[in-house]
Structure formats: structure tokens, C-alpha cells
């Protein structure tokens, strides 16, 4: 479904990805873990073609994303849903209008069909009663659910989730995670989630990958990850301050 081959990406002087290779199979829920600023969200933006890789190839099905022209890229994006960390709902539109936007702009559906689909998607995420509210009137968890409904409204084959449970209380975070699992299973959608929230990651994932210093250092099922001998993975999962992740920088912090 998605394949990244030796992808390199650099922002000015900072190298973010240094040869990332990744293969995502249909209908799996891949979770990419890594530290903040390690380039997890960059991978999602590269798959969407919003950023262009310095080198390497990114495939979505048979399409090589970085070789597509604008028009083709827009068509391919219609098969990919994206849920942003801060939801990115259009603040001037109501919940209903936000969810209906891709349908109105990209399909020829009639008003009735459109309303039916929007109601159905909002019902799936439990937000049908809030359809006339503006994003500002919603809590963080509610916004995430609306963003999820918007991401799924075009029935995409792939959904990308950027920190879906970040900033939510543990109960709402579990609700959002369960929603992701049930919706992806029901709609047979492949998902790629990036997160550094361990509980959420283990709940969602059918497969996991760890991004560290611009490379995927470990890939496997959740069980294998828990038993990993890799010191970086072990430290990341335990949240310990001792280990290779903070080497050097921890000394600087403790000296202060």
C-alpha cells in the first residue's frame, strides 16, 4: 500500500530523515514511534506529497508520490485521509460543513446524499448532535473525533494520524484510540499513526516501527517490541532517563 525507499530529508542544516525505508501492507495499522522532533510527522507529510523528499522514493499503491504533477497528486490525495495533531478544522465552518467540505468540493453528490453521508460519519464518531457547532465550541477530544470523521468521509484507502491522542485525558484518549481501531476495521482502511504515547501506540498497532536519528531502527509486532533488546527501544518504552537516547544532553541538564 505504502512504501518508502531510502528517503532522505533535510530542513536547512538539520538532517531529519537519513535513509528511511518502510513497507506498509493493506489493512494493517502501523504505528511509528519516536521522540518529539524526530521526523515522524515529516513522514506523513512526505506520503501526502506536501513535502518533497531530498532523495529516495515514496510509493502509494502504484504512484510514486514525488514524481506526480499537481493535478495527479490532488487526485491521489483523495484516497488518503489525514487527521492532524491539533485537528486543523476550518475555524470559520461548522462541524457539518467541515465534514462535508471534501464531498462538496471533490464529488458530484446531491445535497441529500451529502447530508446522509455526513450524518452517518458524524454518528460513527458520536458527534451527530454537535453538527451545528463551530470548532471553537468543541473540546480537544471532540475536535479529534470530527477530524477523524472528516478524514474518513471520502472513504479513503489509507488514513494518516498525527498524534491522535496527544493532549487528551486518558479516558478520552482511549475513546479516540478505540474509535480509530473500530473505524479502520469496519471500513477496511490501512492506517499509519505517529505517536510517542506508549499506551495509545500499543492499543492501536498491529505493527510498530521506531524512528531514531533519522532511521527506522526496529520494526515488528507489538509483542516483539515489548521484548526488544535494542537499548534505544527499551529506553523509549520504559521512559527511563538512562540509556542512549539522552546521552550527552542529560549531562547538560543535570549540570544545571
Amino acid at each position: 500500500m505504502v512504501e518508502l525507499r531510502d528517503v532522505h530529508m533535510q530542513f536547512e542544516e538539520k538532517k531529519v530523515l537519513e535513509g528511511v525505508s518502510l513497507d506498509v501492507q493493506p489493512q494493517e495499522r502501523l504505528v511509528i514511534m519516536g521522540q518529539s522532533g524526530s521526523g515522524k510527522s515529516t513522514i506523513l507529510r512526505l506520503i501526502l506529497g506536501i513535502l518533497r523528499a531530498d532523495s529516495g522514493s515514496i510509493f502509494f499503491k502504484q504512484f510514486e508520490i514525488n514524481r506526480l504533477n499537481r493535478r495527479k497528486l490532488q487526485q491521489v490525495r483523495q484516497h488518503i485521509g489525514m487527521v492532524y495533531q491539533y485537528s486543523a478544522l476550518l475555524s470559520s465552518l461548522t462541524v457539518r460543513e467541515n465534514v462535508a467540505l471534501p464531498l462538496e468540493e471533490l464529488t458530484d453528490k446531491s445535497r441529500n446524499e451529502l447530508d446522509k453521508i455526513v450524518d452517518e460519519k458524524l454518528d460513527l464518531v458520536g458527534m451527530k448532535d454537535a453538527k451545528d457547532l463551530l470548532p471553537d465550541e468543541l473540546s480537544g477530544g471532540m475536535r479529534k473525533r470530527v477530524a477523524l470523521a472528516r478524514g474518513l468521509v471520502l472513504e479513503p484507502e489509507l488514513i494518516l494520524l498525527d498524534e491522535p491522542s496527544a493532549g487528551l485525558d486518558p479516558v478520552i484518549a482511549s475513546v479516540v484510540d478505540e474509535l480509530i481501531i473500530s473505524l479502520t476495521e469496519k471500513s477496511k482502511v490501512t492506517s499509519i499513526t505517529v505517536t510517542h504515547e506508549m499506551e495509545s501506540a500499543f492499543r492501536i498497532a498491529t505493527r510498530m516501527a521506531m524512528l531514531y536519528e533519522g532511521k527506522i531502527i526496529e520494526e515488528g509486532e507489538a509483542k516483539e517490541f515489548k521484548q526488544s533488546k535494542n537499548p534505544v527501544v527499551a529506553q523509549f518504552l520504559s521512559g527511563s532517563t538512562e540509556g542512549p537516547i539522552l546521552e550527552g544532553s542529560l549531562d547538560a541538564i543535570t549540570k544545571k
Binding site: I80, M82, Y84, A88, L89, L90, S91, E105, L154
Partner: peptide
Amino acid sequence: TMQVNEEVEAIEAMGIG
């Protein structure tokens, strides 16, 4: 403000110019 709140990127990500 829309750009800062990633709203513009979200529009682009949906396949809308």
C-alpha cells in the same frame, strides 16, 4: 492564522487546491 493552525495544509491534504 489559517496557515499557522495547519488549516491550509489540511485543505491541501484533502486534495483541494
